[in-house]
Design a protein around this nucleic acid. Structure first.
Length: 505
RNA sequence: GCCGCGGUAGUAUAGCCCGGCCCAGUAUGCGGGCCUUUCGAGCCCGUGACCCGGGUUCAAAUCCCGGCCGCGGCACCA
């Protein structure tokens, strides 16, 4: 092997180069305007639910770029709508757990609902500069803006608006009666950009915020809070999905008015994972409407990060898949085969092998004396193995499909299936190979563990009963195994019976 | 409907900005073979794509125009 390599190096160096190139992990394109040590990115989830692989994309890309340029990633929870996107108290921690598992490392952490005074302060400054105003026209404002006109209060002097703003904060207005708007182009082609709402009133007595209760009634909208925070936190690069394109346009008005330098905005398309349910609201509905059918938000049928984790997908595989998708503006569908292929490559090196048999056929062994099979935990670590002793009359289980003709029981010997019995025909591997005997996995009945294998199939979860060799008891929850000739699985729970989740083949 | 952004093999991606080295590279999938105490991994061979139509040019996947299709936005959501 070494000699071959030497020859290669001397005579055909370009071949090795090719090879090295192939082994390289996918790389991200350079980040426009990025300076080493100065890059600051951010991941800003809404803590109203756990994150899925689509949300993980901006998180991983932001993390990856921060690492490439030796910069900082900021984690910021955007929880400024206690009414229609009520934050979930547990979500803050669940999201952090998922991010840690994904290997995402952030240097700063912020929660917007704890920064309200900052937004109020910027709101006042926007008003002072004549860039924002209080609209007390209620529903009429919408119709006016649609026609390129605005609430008459728009032209009042800043002092008036400052007073009105204090009145809003003091509870002088109810929901919908007054909002703070940022002045934009009233003839902007997109009506939602025209004097967009920067702060509004939310009755937190009726819709309390999980963190601040009913302490605040004036809440910044996404666009105000984001532009203020991205500036204050000195974010240099914003990586987000293209649904935010219009928001970028809106936010630029704040930057312009305040004289702030905007970050570089990069928008990419949406990510779908083939065959998985991604939508937060759909997942919530499925769980609510089908009690008992799903295992939780981390059900392996869901595209949530916790669901993929439970399925047995490795965080490195998710990261590699997302990096290889790049940052293009078009939508992408990550095929399951592709993710599974990346995962399989990584899993193959680390997953120990276990013999597992489903749909078993019981066969009594007919052989002259006791024999021992040595089964390595992993083909590349043959010295680390276990021994299974099989004596005449012992019952061995084979998969029904394997129990015919002459077969080789892995590590044990060659047998002929004959009327409910396994008749020993010799131990020659050469013979087995020359006759192309199927080399099959097997389980000794008295030395086995009952297994419930959960196999996600779209919206269904097939439950397969089977038996694994006793060595399975040496593994705990979360262990990833390769069920020989069957596929990869992750141990979901242990006990008298083991529950495994089928990962992929 | 209006505004914006896209369209490279089954899937994803490279190339497009700075036209020729692209009769289009890579991964995965699929077909075949080798190897192997796994139907895994590895190795080899094969399969398969520039949305359509015009234009510019000696030359277009790459530039321009039109069409078609897809996606996103049009909230006092994020």
């Amino acid at each position: 092997m070494d000699r071959q390599r030497r020859i290669l190096e001397e005579e055909y160096p370009e071949l090795l180069e090719e090879r090295a190139k192939k082994e390289e992990r996918p790389r991200l394109p350079p980040l426009p305007g990025a300076l080493e040590g100065r890059v600051r990115t951010r991941f800003a989830p809404n803590p109203d639910f756990v994150i899925h692989i689509g949300n993980a994309r901006p998180a991983i890309l932001s993390d990856e770029y921060a690492k490439i340029y030796k910069g900082t990633l900021i984690l910021r929870f955007e929880d400024t709508d206690p009414r229609t996107k009520t934050p979930l108290r547990e979500a803050y921690d669940l999201i952090k757990e998922d991010l840690k598992w994904l290997g995402v490392e952030w240097g700063e952490e912020h929660i917007q609902s704890l920064r309200m005074d900052i937004y109020y302060d910027v709101a006042r400054r926007l008003i002072e500069r004549g860039c924002a105003y209080i609209d007390t026209c209620g529903q009429d404002a919408r119709e006016l803006l649609r026609r390129g006109k605005a609430c008459p209060t728009r032209s009042n002097p800043p002092e008036w608006h400052l007073e009105e703003f204090d009145k809003m904060l003091a509870g002088g207005y109810g929901e919908g009666e007054a909002v703070v708007r940022v002045k934009t182009d009233l003839s902007h082609p997109n009506p939602s950009v025209r004097d967009w709402v920067a702060l509004r009133i939310i009755d937190t007595n009726r819709h309390p915020h999980p963190l601040t209760g009913s302490k605040y009634i004036v809440w910044p909208t996404y666009n105000l809070a984001v532009s203020v925070d991205d500036h204050i936190m000195e974010v240099t690069h914003v990586l987000r999905a293209k649904e935010h394109q219009v928001n970028t346009e809106k936010q630029l008005y704040v930057y312009k008015c305040m004289g702030w330098e905007p970050p570089v905005f990069i928008h990419f398309g949406r990510l779908k994972l083939e065959g998985f349910i991604m939508s937060k609201s759909y997942i919530r509905r499925l769980i609510e409407e089908n009690p008992g059918k799903f295992l939780g938000y981390d059900d392996p049928r869901f595209g949530t990060i916790s669901g993929l984790r439970r399925r047995g997908i490795l965080p490195e595989a998710i990261r590699e898949a997302i990096i290889s998708l790049g940052v293009k503006p078009g939508d992408v569908t990550l095929s399951w085969a592709n993710l599974a292929a990346i995962n399989r490559k990584m899993l193959d090196n680390m997953a120990d092998r276990i013999m597992y048999v489903h749909d078993p056929e019981r066969l009594a062994v007919d052989q002259p004396q006791c024999m021992e099979a040595t089964i390595p935990r992993h083909p590349e670590r043959p010295q680390d193995s276990r021994v299974i002793r099989v004596c005449p009359g012992d019952v061995v289980l084979l998969n029904r499909g394997d129990a015919r003709g002459e077969v080789r029981l892995m590590g044990l010997g060659n047998y002929r299936v004959d009327g409910g019995r396994l008749v020993y025909t010799g131990d020659s591997l050469e013979y087995a190979r020359s006759k192309r005997l199927p080399i099959v996995q097997w389980v000794k009945e008295t030395d086995s563990v009952r297994v419930k294998l959960l196999k996600p199939q779209g919206l269904e979860l097939e439950v397969e009963e089977g038996l694994a060799e006793a060595a399975l008891r040496g593994y705990g929850v979360d262990s990833r195994l390769q069920l020989i000739r069957y596929g990869f699985a992750r141990i979901d729970s242990v006990g008298e019976e083991y529950t495994l989740v089928y990962t992929h083949d």
